[in-house]
Design a protein around this nucleic acid. Structure first.
Lengths: 152, 152
DNA sequence: TTCTAAAATACAATATATTGTTTTTTGAAG
DNA sequence: CTTCAAAAAACAATATATTGTATTTTAGAA
């Protein structure tokens, strides 16, 4: 850390205490050049995940919206609510790990596709048809071919 | 550090890098329970800036409060989180330069107004309506005239 | 001045972070 | 589909931070 008094770049920690709530670590440091002391705080990055939509507008990530999209794709399929929640949780986890601040809605789509492909081919095709904006039957067929034809 | 995902209190540091300018240390941590990863930042404590509110009460300047006010004004506007953070940072810097110890909350409002005016007219009007306590539609219209009418 | 609570300091035994380098993964572009 | 550059992860050798307890100083109130 750069000493706020003399600007020297090396220092050492004299004391370090975590707050009870685990939200902050306070450190007392000493500049190795001028010996003066200063305090630092370490905090968890607290940013909401922002979703950037196709038209460029931004909004806060909303777990429920994600769930609804997946639920629609799974309608009448033998997939439990728990399973869907698990997927939602996984996707949110991955997104938060992967993107610091912002994620394009398209990226979210990719993650959903990836999960549904593993889970249920019908749900997968339904979701892809919305997400990739299928405009004719051929596109459906092409996609079905890709995952191994009608015998799935 | 308390895991922001599962709340567990123990974690370990996976990576730690100091920024070139020596102002920040970024750490990548992993929760020892859920294994998820998160980022923390350590920064030097600044001398607290005191905000004097309308009723005369004083409190420490709080960057997050400022950010929230601006974020509200920018909701659903095409403005990135990065841009908002940049503005918050600039305003804080200016305030600390301009005012030694204390600053009236009204002064902070003026700074925000100034920045939003440059950035986004809708956000600007929203913020002004709260800050200047608009009480009727006429005041909105008057303000909109001032910035160039409805063709903005 | 005296009292009190909070902040700062000190100390010592133990555990963990740091940092340069390499490898892998990722997202965007061709 | 392939390629490229950037970000993240992995690794390993070394140095430094953490944490419990005790003591001292400071700032504000009485």
């Amino acid at each position: 850390m750069k000493c706020p008094y003399c600007g020297y770049l090396k220092d050492k920690v004299l004391d370090s205490r975590e707050r009870e709530d685990g939200m902050t670590i306070r450190r007392r440091r000493m500049c190795l050049k001028c010996k003066r002391r200063f305090t630092t705080y370490e905090e968890i990055e607290l940013k909401p995940l922002i979703v950037v939509k196709k038209d460029g507008r931004r909004e806060k990530f909303n777990r429920d919206k994600l769930r609804i999209g997946i639920q629609k794709a799974c309608e009448k399929r033998p997939i439990s609510t728990d399973k869907i929640n698990e997927i939602v949780e996984n996707i949110e986890k991955e997104l938060r790990q992967k993107y610091e601040n912002e994620v394009k809605s398209k990226e979210i789509g990719k993650h959903v596709i990836k999960e549904l492909k593993k889970l249920d081919k019908v749900a997968y095709i339904r979701f892809a048809s919305v997400y990739q904006e299928f405009e004719n039957i051929e596109q459906f067929l092409k996609e079905i071919e890709k995952i191994g034809g009608k015998n799935v």
